[in-house]
């Protein structure tokens, strides 16, 4: 068991390192010079050189990469070119709003997904079942950016139920959370339905029925609990998608989290900020995967022996 976990952690570290390298290369090889974007077209050569030197941009690429990685291990995340402030400070400010958004979105998604999945399984082949299949396909096939703008148009502009943007009041959080929730619940509803059906066809359920246990009790106490276990690992796997999707949603709803910071930084080629956020996200993805793997190995001992 220990060696399995250790192996998985090593592999995860290697993946995170690879992602950081790719992110760094893509960013630096893309055209556009952050210093020129910042200083404007008519900056003097002297100013440009001074700023380059200040942000280490005058060094060869591999040196820049190694310096960056070295500093990360020292706990220094670098300085933003655009904000002229430590990257760590910027991310700390923005992390809270992003966690609130993704956390509530995930919560809504899990509740709705589990609810719809369970109901669809209990009423298999009913109208409700078909509707669930339809609605999950529907949400999965529309892009979240478009969904966000349509929701804004209907509930913000036409019905005026909620404000268009901002994150100062409770009502302004409804639409962004719903945008995440509606799409993501589809990911949970379908496996939940399948799991529930499978559990309900198990022999021990039949045995309980034969013993004369009440149907409600069988469903909720025995079947539901068991069907829920795989969903927990699914949450871990789905988390990175939610964080990634939140980037776009934050921009549409003027949500001042990491997503809008990331988009603004890409546009101004603020390398340090983009690199660090991408590294954060990749570590989150890898960690979530690792967690899912380990959780699985606890639930299903057969997995441990595999390579």
């Amino acid at each position: 068991m220990k060696s399995y976990i250790l192996r998985r952690i090593l592999r995860a570290l290697f993946t995170a390192f690879g992602v950081s390298l790719v992110a760094f290369m893509i960013l630096h090889l893309a055209p556009g010079d952050p210093v020129k974007i910042m200083l404007g077209p008519y900056a003097t050569e002297e100013n440009v050189q001074a700023l380059r030197a200040r942000y280490n941009l005058d060094k060869p690429l591999h040196i820049q990469y190694l310096t960056w990685i070295k500093n990360i291990f020292k706990g220094e995340l670098g300085t933003s070119i655009r904000y002229n402030r430590p990257v760590g400070e910027l991310i700390k400010e923005r992390l809270g709003p992003t966690l609130i958004l993704t956390g509530s979105g995930l919560l809504v998604a899990v509740i709705l997904g589990v609810l719809f999945g369970t109901l669809a399984a209990l009423k298999k082949n009913s109208i409700l079942d078909y509707l669930t299949t339809f609605q999950t396909m529907f949400w999965l096939s529309i892009p979240s950016f478009w969904l966000a703008i349509v929701l804004l148009y209907i509930f913000g502009l036409k019905l005026r139920w909620v404000p268009i943007a901002g994150m100062t009041s409770f009502s302004s959080t409804i639409l962004p959370v719903l945008t995440i929730g509606l799409r993501e619940q589809a990911w949970f509803a379908r496996p939940m339905r399948a799991e529930m059906l499978e559990v309900l066809s198990q022999n021990y359920i039949k045995a309980l029925k034969a013993k004369g246990v009440k149907y409600e009790k069988i469903v909720w106490k025995h079947a539901f609990k068991n069907a829920l276990i795989p969903i927990i690992t699914m949450i871990a796997l789905q988390l990175p998608w939610i964080i990634g999707g939140a980037v776009v949603i934050e921009v549409v709803f003027s949500w001042g989290g990491m997503g809008s910071l990331l988009v603004g930084s890409v546009l101004s080629r603020d390398y340090q900020v983009v690199q660090t956020i991408l590294l954060f996200i990749s570590i989150a993805v890898v960690a979530a995967n690792l967690l899912a793997d380990i959780l699985y190995s606890f639930i299903d001992p057969r997995i441990r022996t595999e390579r």
């Binding site: 804004l152 913000g156 005026r160 268009i164 943007a165 901002g166 549409v252 003027s254 809008s260």
Partner: peptide, 18 residues
């Protein structure tokens, strides 16, 4: 002062007088 990075949103916010 509020920040609206997406122009589609700011156009709607102007119409609702937000």
């Amino acid at each position: 002062f509020k920040f609206y990075p997406e122009s589609a949103s700011v156009v709607m916010a102007l119409q609702t007088k937000e």
